[in-house]
Nucleic acid binder design. Structure first.
Lengths: 352, 352
DNA sequence: GCTTCAAGTAAGGAGACCTGACTAGAAGGA
DNA sequence: TCCTTCTAGTCAGGTCTCCTTACTTGAAGC
């Protein structure tokens, strides 16, 4: 605890309240700020003066319309243009996407580029340059396991190898937070504070995110949820690594560890049964180890096999409600975006 | 965020700093307090005056010994007797133990009572009365699964049933935090901030605690780590619930789900192999889902089978260092004690 | 009995907040 | 046209916190 109490502390807290109110409401008069934050009118005015001087807040030039009442017109203030932006980036098999976001959460600019795995680094550089504007921080979603300490993409046995060793932090510069796409997708699903759930991503790759006490739990190296080798029930009843189940069912793409989603979705009833039981084994592991309130199933084939999964989970001694994911449109980008905005806001509020 | 900035805030922060310094050092003069907290001498003196008036701090009557220098003698202050105590309670098959702790972490009084499962409620009442002294809060360790929301002991299928439905909160009164013994044992093992590890408890019962980002992760209902039904490799290679492995090996006590530890420790090499592989399956699940930096093995037979467990974990595609528990003397009581003291300190520092 | 030196205390000042009264300035109505 | 009404914003006065600096207190050493 380095919070030596002082008057500086309360002043910076006041300024933070004002900034956060402006982030929520985009523009406010001094009087509205006072009402919104609970601070007195003179203090709110003084804070606006300080923040304007520091270049964080600016008079928009707009005035309160006469329609509101008949009193004196007020001046609207909002965050200054100079408070900066954040970058949200997605690195996926489909390509690389970069979005430049402001503190209100709006996408200011966007760049996209299809990219083969071997050209991802180059594409990343290009989209970052195209979006430009010197963002203050970046949040990156990658469809690969990510080392938590370094932010580098790593290769695990039997995970579909997308990009190779890649270090987004050195490419983008500045503070960069990298995590895998499943964790970001889970963040997009999060509804309330203190939520506990497991997010099962079942697509060409297999992943899982654990949300405990409202936060994504990444583990020591950031590899929590890399469930390819989790032991579960195989088609023959033997203890089998999860990813092996699909090999035994003949559902992996030739020459790759990726799952053949089309064939899987068209599979026979008995195959779907086997998959349901294998997934239920994974759910059992998540329930016993993490005790999620519910299990959310996403990915390209997971929601499609929901009935089979639910049936098998129903057989477990302890289960959890299984639900389909609600965010289906680029869920990992949605999560990365949310995190980027929240971190940008914190940066502005705390350091200017 | 309800922290409306005000001068009250900084004053209470100052007082909190002074109280925390007294908790660390037991007794300090005003001048030492100022040096320790970084607060100026006059402010430290003023805070002591306020806290003395509120009955939280008292002049011990001791004076600085002449040996220190030749200046004026100082008066030592310490926490007043009235700041209160906390209760740490352990409910285990061996009996019920209650300890009364002060804010320095010292055990002020202690009471113990062997108790058959059906008399635990009564024994709990008795030890609490014997220790007495109206504690401000209680922390309870129970050798049973605990419902996180209510603090009640619950019964899960196949867990060795110790006490039955019991609600320590109503028996003890006041704020009561209940959790199972494995989680408390894990807390006792925690070394540094932000640690990530899994604590495998392998004794008459089976349990696991997950520590992520330095905190024990209890999950939605508090049942995270109840691993009896986790699917792992059985002796015959089939996917088998963990607890069932011991049944198949003939190592459960007749008429109970508890494991016969003596027979297990005397078992043949092939049996130890099979147990090692089953535990490795549990480790694999913990590694894939929680990614602990290390796995700590405790309980009455876990450390004894460490070589077998390590051998089997070594075969996994992804493992983690497996270490024996370092706290072996009543680890769960040690954890409960630590939590009780930390909560008591927070209570004193924040509300008086 | 004088000096030394650390503990503790005034005194004075800066800065942050608040309340309540005041000014500024536009719209509405007689 | 002029007065009233009403709201935005500011000013004045007061409280409260902390800090720095200088002073007093009181025991130990010489």
């Amino acid at each position: 605890m380095d919070t030596r109490p002082s008057l500086d502390l309360v002043r910076s807290l006041t300024d933070e309240h004002v900034l956060r109110a402006l982030m929520r409401h985009r523009r406010l008069t001094r009087a509205e700020l006072a009402a919104e934050t609970g601070i007195s009118k003179p203090t709110a005015g003084e804070s606006v003066r300080r923040l304007t001087e520091r270049g964080l807040v600016a008079d928009t030039g707009e005035r309160t319309p006469g329609g509101r009442g008949r009193g004196r017109v007020g001046s609207y203030y909002s965050l200054a243009a100079g408070v900066g932006t954040a970058l949200a980036v997605s690195i996926a098999p489909e390509g690389v996407v970069a979005e430049c976001l402001d503190a209100y959460g709006d996408t200011v600019r966007r760049a996209e580029r299809p990219a083969r795995p071997e050209h991802v680094a180059e594409a990343l550089r290009e989209v970052a340059a195209e979006v430009g504007g010197q963002p203050r921080l970046a949040v990156v979603s990658a469809a690969d396991p990510v080392d938590r300490a370094t932010g580098r993409l790593v290769h695990l046995p039997d995970s579909p190898f997308l990009v190779g060793e890649l270090d987004p932090a050195t490419i983008l510069g500045g503070p960069v937070l990298v995590d895998n796409d499943v964790n970001w997708a889970a963040r997009a699903e999060r509804v309330s504070q203190g939520d506990d759930f497991a997010y099962l991503f079942l697509g060409a790759g297999l992943g899982c995110a654990i949300v405990g006490d409202g936060e994504i739990r990444r583990g020591r190296s950031g590899l929590a949820g890399e469930i390819a080798h989790l032991l579960t029930a195989g088609p023959d009843g033997r203890a089998t690594p999860f990813i092996e189940v699909f090999a035994q069912l003949g559902l992996r793409r030739p020459g790759s560890t990726a799952i053949d989603v089309e064939r899987l979705l068209a599979a026979a009833e008995s195959t779907r049964d086997a998959i349901g039981r294998a997934v239920a084994g994974v759910v059992a592991a998540a329930v016993t180890l993490a005790d999620p309130g519910r299990v959310i199933v996403g990915g390209s084939w997971g929601p499609g096999l929901l009935p089979d999964i639910r049936a098998a989970v129903g057989e477990l001694p302890r289960g959890a409600p299984v639900e389909p994911a609600t965010v289906t449109d680029q869920p990992s980008m949605a999560g990365a975006r949310a995190e980027a905005v929240s971190r940008l806001r914190a940066l502005i509020a705390q350091t200017g």
